[in-house]
Structure formats: C-alpha cells, structure tokens
Amino acid sequence: MRFLIIIPAHNEENNLSFTLDSLQQQSFKEFKVVVVNDGSTDRTEEIIKKYVDTDSRFETVNLQKSSHQPGSKVVNAFKNGLNTQNLDEFDIICKFDADIILPENYLETIRNSFQNNPEYGLVGGLLYVEKDESWIYEGNSNKHHVRGPMKAYRKESFTQMGGLRETLGWDNIDSILLENLGWKEVVLSELQVKLIKVKGTDYTIKPAEYYGRYFYFLGLNRFLAYIASSKEAAKSKSISFFFTIIKSYESCRSKKLELKISKQEQKIINDQRWKALKKKWLKM
C-alpha cells in the first residue's frame, strides 16, 4: 500500500522541519509527500526546498496567500496539493498538519490496520501536547474520533464520500459521511502524535461566535444547534455564552450563507446527531 500525504503549511518555519523529519524517519518508506505552501511570508518555502532537493518523495505546491475562511482555508490548500497527483498510484490518502511529530511506526501501523481490516475507512492516532515539560493527551475530542492534524483515509472511502469539504467542521463532516457509507473510523491509541505548536491545552477554548458558525456550517437544524449551544455554554458556565452562540448561528441563517454539503448530506448529519442525542441523553 502506498501513501499520498498532503501537508498544508502557512508560516510554519518553526515547526515544519520536525514534521518532515519524522516522515523521513518512518519505518515504512512507500509514500509521497506534497507540502502546500499557502502564501507563507516566513522561511517555510526555504525549508520545504531542502527536502524537495534531497528526497524524491517530497514535492511542493506554492499558492498565493489564501483569503478563505478558517476551516475552508486548510481544505482548499489540501485540494490544491491533491489535484497535482494521480490518485491511481496510491492506496491511502493523508491530510497531515505541518506542526506534528509522528512516531517512527506511524505509517507502518496505519498500513497494517488498513490491510487487516477492509472495513476501516479512516484511521489515526491520538494527539499529545506539551505541558509542564511532559507530553499529555490533548483531550479535545473523544478517543474514537481521528483529529484533523493526522487523518489517513483509505482511498476508496475518501472517493466515495466525495473528498473533504471546504468548510468549518470539515473534520467532523467526514466522519459522519463515512459512517453513513458503512466505513469505520478507528483511533489507534498506541500511536501518540505530538502537536508541537501548542503549549498546554488552553488553545481548545473557542469564542462563542466560532461555535455559532460551526454549528451552522455543519448543517445542524435550529433545534440541534440550540442543544449543542447549551452544551458549550454549560462547559463555560456562562448563560451569555449560549446567547452569543445563538446570535452567531442565527446571523448565518439570516444571511443564508452557502453550505458546502448537499441537502441529503445535511439530513445525514442531523439524523446522526439526533441518534447520538437520544443515545446519550434520552437513553433510547
């Protein structure tokens, strides 16, 4: 099985070399890396060139500075890299961030997992962040969800779901669509991936306006969006947080901002959310 690894990078001069070094040190060698330089103004392009010039498995794509919104920006860069490749040459498609360090057996373990489990469509490890000079589990998601910085898709599953969506919430939309198609998303907890840009876990706190936009672009109907908003407000222990989320969500609705998912996909997402809600809260 051969890997195609796409890495969007914007001003990652302090982190990118760690990511690319960890790829060169992988026990499994059958991969190609495409680093998409998304309008960097620092030394990112220079760093990429060092790997491209010395290792034929590395390529680069240079983009002008992206004006896309958060969420869509990284997927737009990813797609630009993907479009330069012949997917017939690959079996596994990866979207990695430019600020992670992979354990040496990462690709080999992912490859073995796909080979031994034909129902697996999306596989990844767990993210760890540095805190008080130790690496601890990030804890920003449940341990059954592959986080955005280290996604590995079986090519067939990736193609069936129509690739990634250029929108906020893309890394949850993919999971739901894959599940609906019958593919399994699997987290291999023994694979500990270091997220090097972050110190501690405070970065996981998002402003209320973010959640309003996120719930809208995820395609949630009003009822489910309000339920999700109350959950986030409870975490922050703030009633005003709830109303700010709702204001942001309703603003998106009133403007009728374009969704990057179809009506059918929106129904799939809402049905899945409703099923999860009944299972967790209503014990149904």
Rank of each mutant, 00 (worst) to 15 (best):
G148Q: 06
D174V: 10
K131D: 11
L282W: 05
S66V: 05
E45P: 01
D53H: 06
A233V: 09
Y120Q: 13
L177S: 13
E133V: 14
I7W: 01
S240Y: 07
L23E: 01
E108Q: 07
K184D: 12
L102K: 06
Q160V: 04
S240F: 13
R147C: 09
S66L: 01
N15E: 09
E156G: 13
Q160M: 07
S27N: 09
R213G: 12
Y249S: 09
K255L: 07
W170A: 13
T204A: 14
N80D: 00
S229K: 11
N83T: 06
Y137G: 06
V123F: 07
F28M: 08
I47R: 03
E250Q: 11
I245P: 15
W281G: 14
P118N: 02
I110P: 07
L127P: 04
E130H: 04
A152H: 11
E104Y: 02
K237H: 14
F28V: 08
F96A: 05
N140T: 12
K155P: 12
L23T: 09
S27V: 02
L195G: 11
G200C: 00
H145C: 10
V61R: 00
N86E: 04
I268T: 14
G169C: 08
F158N: 12
Y226I: 12
I7Q: 10
I239Q: 12
K197G: 15
M1D: 07
K49M: 14
K231D: 15
I110Y: 05
N270I: 05
A234V: 11
F243N: 14
L87N: 10
R165N: 14
I48K: 06
N140G: 13
Y120I: 15
V33Y: 00
E89T: 08
F223T: 09
L164P: 11
Q24L: 10
K32A: 04
Y120P: 08
K283V: 09
F90Y: 13
L178V: 10
Y128T: 09
V146C: 10
R213K: 15
S27Q: 08
S157P: 10
K275V: 04
G163C: 13
S175F: 02
R253Y: 02
P207L: 12
Q25C: 06
S67F: 09
G219N: 05
E133P: 04
E209A: 13
Q264C: 00
L220H: 09
P70W: 03
Y216S: 07
S67A: 09
I136G: 15
T54E: 06
S134Q: 12
Y216E: 08
I176Q: 11
E130W: 01
K29D: 05
I173A: 15
W281Y: 13
